[in-house]
Amino acid sequence: MLKALQIEPEKCTGCLQCEMACSFHADGVFNPSKSRIKIFTFHDEGRFVPYTCTQCSEAWCMHACPVEAIVLNEKTGAKEVLADVCVGCKVCTIACPFGTVNYDQTSKIAYKCDLCGGAPECAKACPTGAITYVDADHTGLARMRGHAAKSANMSAGA
């Protein structure tokens, strides 16, 4: 069964545990500035929104790469950057409509979420359940359950 990251922004508190877990897994240091998942704060609205690669089936980045450095991991469905093939041309960063592929000045190659090989650290670190790793066909299940509970309440209260 293929799994996917399920993100529920309404649960997020903006603590950045996920960003640290991500950067720690990838680079061995706690460094939110190098995280593949990003939390965006909309202060005036009181909203925190985690955002990362959704691993498109027909991935723009993968198709755009001129040296075929971005490949599909059949097991996880992730599109992964092959560090030794990537030439750092940044075409993928332009191709991705969501901005989730970025260039790293230090390593001089592109980097993106690779689902940590099938055990995403961000989901493990998140204290609120805003990021979970679930059946890829059912990332809407938790929200459906929430609404189902509400409608059940309504009829019970009627």
Partner: peptide, 19 residues
């Protein structure tokens, strides 16, 4: 209260965001 908010690395998140 709009939401609660955490400081950096905080898994408690006592912060209040209000209108």
């Amino acid at each position: 209260l709009v939401t609660n908010a955490g400081c950096f690395a905080c898994t408690i998140a006592c912060g209040r965001i209000s209108t």
